[in-house]
Design a protein around this nucleic acid. Structure first.
Lengths: 116, 116
DNA sequence: TTGACAATTGAACAGTTGTTCAATTATAAT
DNA sequence: ATTATAATTGAACAACTGTTCAATTGTCAA
């Protein structure tokens, strides 16, 4: 289970024990940090930002971001696995679109944060 | 400036050119992704979560998270550099507290996202 | 069927990240 | 002054990440 360990005693054991029950479960914690990890890449933010404006296929996104199709496709896969975008095949092309309304809100809040 | 490059032509050049002016500046993009990178670690989320409940010193946080003081201190430094927490020396101890009201909101939104 | 194009894939690479360990700084108590 | 405790620091290490490159899949048009 827990393989880390402290190397000290608590200074204010009362505070620690008051806070402990408020801490989130490890499971939730990993889901949260995994979500932020996905957001923590400038290429993926660009992709989400672009798809907020319009659905687009891989080639268009590659031109827009000035990257190779391969690099874009790899990152779209990350976003797809994280369920932030979805893919739809139309003829020869695969069109990507946003799959989650929370993302826009979170991006806006983060924007407020970095802009202040 | 730009050292990446496409390996293809746009399929829908009209869409690409319609979206292009809406794209954020590289500068802003990096600030955004840097912020999410900081949030994208379960240890740092635990620290922020704990400090939302009460300010605490390094030793208490180490006990609470069951980690070494060193590991906690390293991560607190990351949060300090990102201006998400601030440190105040009180006698023998250094007390850390939240330094940004946006963080709580963003954590809540992210929580809504991963919980649905 | 053949050829061209769109997209995906996996391996490889360099660059980055988080924890550990040992050493160090700084404060408080004796 | 000396000792003990709190916290920070830097180097080292393994684990992870993002892009490139080359090869592959699947679809359309001729």
């Amino acid at each position: 289970m827990e393989n880390k360990r402290t190397d000290c005693e608590a200074i204010n054991i009362d505070i620690v024990e008051k806070v402990r029950p408020k801490m989130p479960e490890m499971n939730l914690l990993y889901e949260l940090s995994d979500f932020f990890k996905v957001m923590g890449d400038s290429t993926r933010i660009q992709l989400l930002w672009a798809l907020e404006e319009s659905e687009m296929c891989v080639g268009d996104l590659a031109v827009l971001l000035n990257m190779t199709k391969s690099a874009v496709s790899h990152q779209l896969k990350v976003l797809r696995v994280a369920k932030l975008v979805r893919a739809e095949k139309k003829g020869k092309n695969v069109y990507y679109s946003l799959n989650d309304h929370h993302v826009k809100l979170i991006l806006e809040k983060a924007l407020e944060h970095v802009c202040e």
